Simulated assay, not measured.
Amino acid sequence: MTGSSTADSSATAAVPVLDLTASGGELTAALVDIPSVSGDERLLADAVEAALRSLPHLTVDRDGDAVIARTDLGRSERVVLAGHLDTVPIADNLPSRVDGDLLWGCGTSDMKAGVAVQLRIAATVLDPNRDLTFVFYDCEEVEATRNGLGRLARIHPEWLAADFAVLMEPSNAQVEGGCQGTMRATVSTSGHRSHSARSWLGDNAIHKAAPILQRLADYVPRLVDIDGLEYHEGLNAVNIQGGVAGNVIPDACTVTVNFRFAPDRSEAQAEAHIREVFDGYQVVVTDSAPGALPGLSHPAAAAFIAATGATPQAKFGWTDVARFSALGVPAVNYGPGDPNLAHTREEHCSLAAVDECEKRIRDWLQD
């Protein structure tokens, strides 16, 4: 076993021991019970690294709080199984609890169930028909500039080189092709301050934002068919800020909008569309990530779909398949969690779905 580590050795918390021989559901629960809100994944990354370094058939590397493990068997094809370690902020839903077939807790669906499948495959598939790269990374749930997979793509693109990638994002164990892009922008108005008792002396910037909200209310999103998958765009206000004090007519107001765009648009085209919708207003793009075309006709993708028996669907949310696509690696989303439960206080996953997802991937790698 070889590899390097750039983890901060100053961490003093005891590293939890992950039992990779436990069932997928039990391992998911163990992962959930190690809190890992974005930016605070160190302890979980330490546990994942320690568990993988105990497996002699893998080479393990680390960059920050991202851990990468690889087989080197000389197979003709290499595939990546990738998943993020972080979660959104905890919503009084830790520790995990089991109720029948359901495991409840922060990160169960998005996406520690998928991470558990990765770890189970890493530990138990010793002679795969394809070489494997397992990627566990940090900061997926926050702004794109902090994304751990993006950092690896910039610093260690060779670690991500492959013929095909499976991102273990929650997809109800269905193959979700490509992903939509996402762009956030601010749309601003300006006015003139005055005392609210003499409002006619001012120019209310919040009132001037009303047409912006009306344009959003009237907006008709595109439905786009690509490779037989239908993508549903959306343009929505997600934040509005304005106001000075309870007795002041405000002189500034900012509406933040989020555009989820089909992967047939580039980021430049998405920005042009936002500016067209809000023509006449000051528009500033604050965050952006491109979409990814499905690529389901690629032989590796077709083989994966056939092996899993899954029905391809469009991915409405943005995922890191876009980063693999930018590296020239076709990728799909496939994981046991329910995407509709992601980020909710009621987040949970089916234990049977974790086992089924693991079985399908195992069969694909051992056919």
Rank of each mutant, 00 (worst) to 15 (best):
T21W: 04
L73H: 14
D99T: 12
R362C: 05
E230A: 15
D338P: 08
I121N: 11
S10T: 14
W159L: 11
V17F: 06
V285Q: 07
S54C: 07
I155D: 15
G64Y: 13
G337Q: 01
L73S: 12
D72M: 13
A82V: 02
P221G: 09
D19F: 04
D127M: 07
Y137M: 02
S188I: 05
T344V: 04
S325M: 01
A352I: 11
G243A: 08
S9P: 12
E140W: 09
H84N: 07
F134N: 09
I274Q: 01
D287E: 13
D218C: 03
G114W: 05
A14L: 13
V32M: 14
V332A: 01
G74M: 08
A310Y: 07
M183H: 01
P339Q: 00
T286R: 02
V80Q: 08
V321P: 03
R97C: 02
T319D: 11
E358C: 06
T182V: 15
M183D: 03
L327Y: 02
L213P: 00
V17D: 05
I155P: 02
S23R: 06
G191N: 08
A22F: 15
V283K: 11
E77S: 06
G74A: 05
A7T: 09
Q366F: 00
L31C: 05
R151C: 09
G83S: 09
T28R: 12
G150Q: 10
A307L: 07
D279G: 14
A69L: 01
I68A: 15
S325E: 00
P250M: 10
L351Y: 05
R75I: 01
T189L: 03
L126F: 08
I361D: 03
K315S: 10
A11I: 15
G39N: 06
A353K: 06
A209F: 03
N333P: 08
D367G: 15
D287M: 15
F316Y: 13
R53V: 03
I249E: 10
H195E: 08
V329I: 15
E347N: 04
P263Q: 11
R151Q: 13
T286I: 06
D101G: 01
H298D: 14
W200R: 12
A272D: 14
P211A: 00
P250Y: 11
D251V: 03
L365R: 10
A252W: 08
T186H: 10
V220I: 14
G74P: 13
A289S: 09
T319Q: 07
Y231I: 05
F261H: 12
G280P: 00
T108I: 00
A30G: 04
